[in-house]
Amino acid sequence: MPDSAFLEAFGLIATANADLYEILWLSVQVSITALLISVFLGFPIGTTLAILDFRGKNLCTTLLNALMGLPPVVVGLLVYLALSRSGPFGVLGLLYTPTAMVIAQVVLITPIIAALTYQVMDDLHREYRELFLSLNIQLPKAISTYLWDARYSLITTVLAGFGRAISEVGAVMIVGGNIDHLTRVMTTAIALETSKGELAIALALGVVLLTLALIVNGLVTAVRTRARKYGYT
């Protein structure tokens, strides 16, 4: 690989190349939006599954765990079919827009957030259940206690979801179309620029993506260390 591509890549980052930062900003916007929606859906799903006993609970948890491994391209295809002109939501005209990319990411990361939330809450519920019964703690207070006491684990869950969202390529490529200045995000741009032989911009985006991944992992480690230090795990 030519050294000049690396130098050019760092040059693009250092000079705040407009195209690069536009792609970065859209990536972050799409991923954060998808993450917020997924947290909004995934926390209640995971918590409800952990706390409530009902027929078919095992089936639901098995399904949720299976959905964690959804292949992104299959999700992309399904969202594409749903949003395409002839699909049930075609009239909304969302295909090849950032909204379509958000939808695909929500479908991908909600099961991850929900399943990890379920695991955290289930452990806590098993530990606290008898105490809460003994103290006659009502459900709303129990739920708020679970959420507060599991806060460090839940932050880790959210960061894991963000990591998954920001690094996703297959689904957003299909539903977003990788349109310049409209739906081009870091991962799809890297794939395109590499295929075109434009290694500098691909490398610059790769460096930024890698930095983001390192920051997220650093935060996860910091959160875990703090939780362990204060006995909150």
Binding site: Y128, E130, L131, S134, L135, D149, G231, Y232
Partner: peptide, 23 residues
């Protein structure tokens, strides 16, 4: 009014005084 002390203490992940306040 009843209360129970379990064989294995179940404590919330918060400070000592906050555990009392919770109950």
């Amino acid at each position: 009014p009843q209360a129970m002390v379990f064989q294995k203490p179940v404590l919330l992940r918060r400070s000592v005084i906050d555990n009392l306040q919770f109950a």
